[in-house]
Amino acid sequence: MSSSQPNTRVLSFASDLAEARHVQAEIEAALTAAAFGERDVFAVKLALEEALVNAIKHGNGLDPEKKVHVRYAVSTERFDVCIVDEGPGFNPEEVPDPTAPENLERPCGRGLLLMRHYMNHVEYSDAGRAVQMSKIKK
């Protein structure tokens, strides 16, 4: 995501799920203002929820000293977001497939699957601490 892109917002907040709600509400309002449809808004909301919970809980371990950094841009064609945590990172390739029969009844591990399904592009970098996601408006 280029920083020269119009309407790019950069923000950081403590590892607190209530703080994440403000960011989600702000992004939802921006998507609606850019005339994203109801299904696209649902898709982005769900992917954001999963990515932010991953950053706050699994990345930063709910440590209030650690922050989550979000950079996003909404245009009339697309939505791009980058979420970075300050945790130890992880290898997304090592997350077991939650749809495999032996994993179907595991109570967790579905966030990444949902992010990949609902967004057009999901890419991890910085040893799993940063996730970049994009959604092209339908």
């Binding site: 649902f42 769900l46 929820e49 999963e50 919970v53 009844e105 109570p107 967790c108 579905r110």
Partner: peptide, 16 residues
């Protein structure tokens, strides 16, 4: 209207 994967986990535990 909306739920996340964390909620699905609770349904799985209840089902079990």
């Amino acid at each position: 209207e909306f739920l996340s994967s964390a909620a699905l986990g609770k349904l799985i535990v209840l089902n079990r």
